[in-house]
């Protein structure tokens, strides 16, 4: 199954970010958290960190001597991080994306390994710009990081609303590869276009 962009998104490249989450508008300057929200975030972070610690130490009780301070410190640091726009992931979307991601990282690694071993080293490196269409937040981070694992592309810098991509071979079709990735990430995070409903 290959997701395609909804018709209202299929338009020429180079435009402002246009995906919005169904829960909230992109928060470039997030609101200050209320004390209840801060407590909730502290508790959730601490719980996740505690679970990871328990797994890492095989549930050993004496390891909590280090674990409890580390979990509390980690949760406290989590409070200092800027709040990001809320996001949600679709479970079946996550499975589909994970499988696709695994296939792509194999493709990317085989491609770069082939170039490294080839006696003539087929490289035509260079930078290309691509307009970012996700607002700041989890989907954008996912997009930028995933690009580095696709064959021949590496996200080098975010310049305003544009992403600067380094390519091993600039003859490759960057725009179609990246807009396919955009559609997949939009499906993963249950994002709709601006024209869609805002829930």
């Amino acid at each position: 199954m290959s997701p395609t962009l909804p018709p209202e998104l299929a338009r020429p490249a180079r435009a402002k970010p246009e995906f919005v989450s169904t829960q909230s508008l992109p928060a470039t300057r997030p609101p200050v958290l209320s004390s209840w929200a801060r407590l909730r975030r502290f508790a959730v972070t601490a719980l996740v960190l505690a679970l990871i610690w328990a797994v890492l130490t095989n549930g050993r009780l004496d390891a909590w001597i280090f674990g409890i301070p580390a979990v509390l410190a980690g949760a406290a640091i989590g409070l200092m991080l800027p709040d990001s726009a809320r996001w949600r992931m679709s479970p079946q979307g996550a499975v589909v994306f994970a499988i696709w991601f695994a296939v792509q990282s194999v493709r990317g690694a085989v491609d770069v390994a082939g170039r490294a071993f080839a006696p003539k080293m087929p490289l035509r490196p260079g930078f290309r710009r691509y307009p970012l269409r996700f607002p700041p937040g989890a989907p954008r981070v996912m997009f930028v990081n995933t690009i580095s694992l696709l064959p021949g592309t590496l996200s080098a810098e975010i310049a305003g609303e544009e992403l600067i991509v380094h390519m091993l071979d600039t003859r490759a079709d960057l725009a179609s590869e990246l807009s396919a990735l955009e559609a997949r990430i939009a499906a993963l995070f249950v994002l709709h276009s601006l024209e869609g409903d805002r829930g």
Binding site: S105, G108, A109, A113, A116, L123, L149, H166
Partner: peptide
């Protein structure tokens, strides 16, 4: 090994990053 060969052979820092992130990641 492919990642390391790329690190040694590729012409600039950006191409070398490709070799490290992708090949070593799959390795």
């Amino acid at each position: 090994i492919a990642g390391t060969v790329g690190l040694l052979r590729f012409p600039d820092i950006f191409c070398r990053l490709h070799a490290l992130t992708k090949a070593d990641g799959l390795g």
